[in-house]
Simulated scan of single mutants.
Amino acid sequence: MSGGGTADFFYREAQRLVYVARSAFKLLQIQKQYKLITPGSSVLDLGCAPGAWLQVACQSLGPLKNGGAVVGIDLKKVKVPSTHCDSRVSTVSADVMNLPKDEFLNLYPQKEGFSVVRYVSTCYWYHN
């Protein structure tokens, strides 16, 4: 835990449930309320470090047979967390603002685009 304070409930709970960060609970709450990520969704997570949102997004896709994909992009190299993630999750280390268009388009699952986009700066969501 950074900041030198005492670990709060969500920090301890994230550790217990093997999420890489307490922020996983924010997405769990959003997902419970709005159900943005459905089976087969394609999710783009811009600013994906440390990866807790990748974990919850993958879980929200349901079983592997449902399909779907989660792509995380961050300036930092982010390793896909081994817990709560499967082969549908991938990460790219890049500045999305400088990513060549053809490379970005190659990230699209089945070339159909993304159904859910999360931008970390102030947690904007786009859902079509």
Rank of each mutant, 00 (worst) to 15 (best):
S93G: 08
G62H: 01
M1F: 13
L17Q: 15
S93I: 02
Q59R: 05
A14W: 06
P109N: 09
G67L: 05
I37P: 01
S82W: 15
Q110E: 14
V89C: 07
G72W: 03
A94N: 14
R22Q: 02
M97N: 09
P109E: 04
N66G: 03
T91S: 11
P109F: 04
V80K: 08
C58R: 15
V70C: 12
M97G: 04
T91G: 09
R12N: 12
K76I: 04
I73R: 07
Y34S: 09
N98Y: 09
H84L: 14
M97Y: 03
S82P: 12
G51I: 04
S23G: 11
S82R: 15
D74H: 10
P50Y: 00
G5A: 11
Q33E: 15
Y11Q: 11
V56M: 09
A24N: 15
S60D: 00
I37F: 02
A57C: 03
V96D: 14
P109I: 12
E13F: 07
S2D: 09
F104R: 02
P81S: 13
F104V: 07
G68F: 00
L61C: 03
Q55C: 13
L27Y: 02
A52P: 11
P63C: 00
N66P: 01
S93L: 06
K76C: 05
A49T: 13
R22Y: 08
L99M: 14
A52W: 15
Q31V: 09
T6R: 10
V80Q: 14
L107A: 04
G51P: 12
N98D: 13
D102G: 00
V71S: 11
Q33F: 06
Q31I: 08
Q29R: 05
D45C: 02
S2N: 15
D74Y: 07
A24C: 12
W53Y: 05
L105E: 12
Y108V: 08
I73N: 08
A24S: 13
S82T: 15
G3C: 04
L28W: 00
D95I: 06
K65L: 11
S82E: 15
A14V: 01
S93D: 06
L17C: 13
S2M: 11
T83C: 13
L46I: 15
V20W: 14
L105V: 08
S42F: 06
V78K: 12
L99H: 10
V18N: 12
M97W: 08
K26A: 10
C85A: 06
W53E: 10
T38Q: 13
R88G: 08
R22L: 14
G5L: 05
K26I: 03
V70P: 02
P50E: 02
G62A: 08
P100V: 10
C85W: 15
S41W: 05
N106V: 00
Q15G: 09
L44I: 10
D86Q: 04
L61E: 08
F25P: 03
G68A: 02
S60N: 07
G51Y: 01
I73E: 09
E103H: 09
P50W: 10
L107K: 04
S2G: 09
A57K: 02
Q15A: 14
R16V: 07
L105W: 02
E13D: 06
A24W: 05
D95Y: 12
S23L: 01
G51L: 10
D95A: 11
V71I: 15
F9H: 10
N66V: 00
A57E: 10
N66R: 07
I37Q: 14
P109G: 06
L61V: 06
Y34G: 00
P109Q: 10
V89H: 12
Q55Y: 14
D8E: 08
S41F: 01
G68I: 00
V92N: 01
